[in-house]
Simulated scan of single mutants.
Amino acid sequence: MGRKQYLFDVLTDLSNQEIKPNQVIIVEQNADPESNSELDYIFDDWSFTINHLFTHQTGACNARNISLGKTTADWILLFDDDVRVPVDFMAQLQHTLISTKVKAITVACLQKGEKEAQQTVKQWPYFGSGCSLVHREIVDRCKFDKALEHGYGEDVDFGMQIRRAGYDVIYAPQIQILHLKAPVGGFREKRIFPWSTDNIQPKPSPHIMYFRKKNYSENQLKGYKLVQWFKNYGKLGSFLPWGHNELFNKAWESSKKYANSL
């Protein structure tokens, strides 16, 4: 979305790989109903097939689900449009797959100057929707939850779906790609949600609450609520314990209400 040059650089990096992808699926989005594709270079001679889809419906969840529905390969790389990768990136992935024998790997997606302290692969509780390789078995059973569209947590939720389906997610910090964090394009438009003008803003975000209620046990949710009570102390308008407690409970109940509506 609005990142023509960045995406061209991504395609160039993939084209230069020692082990090349068979197909690259691009879901281009532009909310303007009068708009057309700006990706003229997709008709160039690339070393892989490009499957290009254009839609006026914006949203990462929708776009990823569309693209997953178009895949036929055994392995699917979920990728961002503003990253750069070394020529041996795919070869590193293949080596790690062979050594770990897992079905889902997330790699280190670092910004310029950022260092990764972790040195070895590890089991971890997260998932990166823009820097992960997953097996066909997973995409046949898991989809991005559109209740989280334009919000937060859709990638972590996808990781939870993977685990609930019986698979492990491995973080491979030694495989590193550069995340440019493009200052243009993407999903930067501020969304107006039903709660945006409420006097008492929901805490946490209804999207986060939705994710927690969907994936947490009752005791985990109580523990999360307690942590949030302390983290937000004094930030809601009162430093008095009883005053803060009243404001926090109103914000929490508002979040639960809107989470249910998602």
Rank of each mutant, 00 (worst) to 15 (best):
S15T: 05
L262E: 04
L221C: 05
P125F: 03
K222C: 04
H56V: 10
P183K: 00
Y126F: 14
L133T: 00
K20I: 14
K250D: 07
Y6R: 02
P194M: 09
K146D: 04
Q228S: 13
K203L: 14
W229M: 12
K115L: 14
Y210N: 02
F248D: 08
S238P: 06
G153T: 03
G243A: 04
N51E: 14
Q17P: 06
V10W: 02
K115Y: 13
F158W: 05
D198A: 10
S254H: 10
V134D: 03
L148P: 01
D81T: 03
R163S: 07
G223Q: 13
I138G: 03
L53S: 10
F79L: 15
E218T: 08
L11A: 07
E189C: 03
T96E: 15
S205Y: 06
L262F: 14
S99D: 13
G151Q: 01
Y171G: 00
Y210V: 00
N51Q: 12
R136M: 02
S254Y: 03
P125Q: 07
Q174F: 04
D13C: 15
I50P: 09
D45N: 15
L39Y: 15
Q111H: 11
L262P: 06
A60H: 09
L247W: 05
H52E: 08
G234W: 07
N22A: 11
P241E: 08
G234M: 06
A91D: 09
T55Y: 09
E116K: 12
Q57H: 14
V83P: 06
N215T: 12
M90K: 02
K103T: 12
V139T: 07
Q176L: 01
R188Q: 12
Q161P: 01
F54D: 11
G223C: 05
T55N: 09
K4C: 10
K250E: 12
S217I: 01
I175R: 04
Q92V: 05
K190M: 10
S217Q: 07
H207V: 00
A63I: 06
S15P: 01
N36W: 06
V102S: 15
T49H: 14
C61M: 08
T106P: 08
K112M: 09
H95D: 14
G185D: 07
R3T: 09
C61N: 13
N199K: 13
T12F: 07
R141G: 01
V139C: 03
G237P: 09
F48R: 08
E189D: 14
N36S: 15
G237M: 05
Y258W: 09
Y6W: 08
I25Q: 00
D13P: 03
P183L: 01
H135W: 06
W75A: 06
L93D: 02
I76T: 15
K225E: 13
H95M: 11
Q92N: 15
I200T: 12
